[in-house]
Simulated scan of single mutants.
Amino acid sequence: MKMNPYLSFDGSCEEAFKTYAKVLGGEIVAMLPYKDMPMENNFPPEWGKKIAHARLIFGDNVLMASDASPERYKPMEGVSVTLNIPEPAEAERVFDALADDGKVDMALDETFWAHKFGVLVDRFGTRWMVNCEKPR
């Protein structure tokens, strides 16, 4: 069994996933706009280019998402996407890239369990934890 986060965006899914693919070194394997969906007539025409489903693969991880309509979109609350990165320098690079134009809730720093740990909300509204654990 595998668990894959599924994110909702307010119309910025495509831009967010292109950013995530670049930052995480992944490949977008699906980016399906509403206009190409079988039930495209159920959505307003201005939603044609918004994303009904996106899938990003990086390493052995999968991240999925879509744009939610304004009446259904709710900002991420009570959950974080956590990245466990083995090298401190890579943790810093990823944290800094995701934090660009976002909000850092906890600066990336050493903790009792990690060489580096930090929390941020990126410019797309996704809450991330970046963790670089110390050896046990």
Rank of each mutant, 00 (worst) to 15 (best):
S80C: 13
T126E: 05
K116I: 07
A89Q: 14
L108F: 10
T111H: 06
A114R: 01
E87M: 03
L120Y: 06
M106Q: 12
F124L: 11
D122V: 12
G78V: 11
P88Q: 09
L108V: 09
D109L: 00
P86L: 03
E77R: 10
F124G: 07
T126C: 14
M76S: 04
D105G: 07
E87I: 00
D105T: 10
D96N: 15
V121C: 11
I85W: 06
A91N: 08
D100C: 07
G118D: 08
F117Y: 15
F117E: 06
D100K: 15
E92R: 11
A99F: 10
F95A: 10
P88A: 07
F112L: 07
F112S: 08
E92G: 11
A114M: 02
V121H: 09
V104R: 08
G125C: 04
K116N: 02
I85A: 04
T111Y: 06
A97V: 07
S80I: 08
F112C: 03
R93T: 06
F117Q: 08
L120Q: 02
E90I: 00
D109E: 00
L98G: 13
A99H: 05
F124A: 08
V104G: 04
V81F: 09
E110W: 00
V81N: 07
L98T: 11
R123I: 09
M76F: 00
W113A: 11
F117I: 12
G125W: 02
D105Q: 12
L98V: 13
A107Q: 11
V121N: 09
V121M: 12
M106G: 01
G125Q: 01
G78H: 10
V104A: 03
T111W: 05
T82P: 02
R93G: 01
P88K: 07
D122Y: 13
T111C: 10
A97R: 02
L98R: 10
D122A: 14
I85Y: 06
M106A: 09
V81M: 12
E77I: 13
H115Q: 11
V94S: 02
T82W: 02
K103C: 10
A97K: 05
M76T: 07
T126L: 13
A97Q: 14
V79Y: 04
D109F: 00
F117P: 06
I85H: 02
D100V: 11
A107S: 12
D122R: 07
A97P: 12
E92W: 01
T82A: 15
P86H: 05
K116T: 03
N84S: 14
E110K: 12
G102A: 08
E87K: 09
D101M: 05
A99S: 12
H115D: 06
T126M: 12
E90K: 06
P86C: 05
V94C: 04
K103A: 11
D122S: 08
L98Y: 09
E87G: 00
N84W: 03
R127V: 08
V121K: 13
M76K: 00
S80F: 13
T82D: 05
T82V: 14
E90Y: 01
D109A: 11
E92T: 13
M76Q: 15
A99T: 07
D109Q: 11
E90M: 03
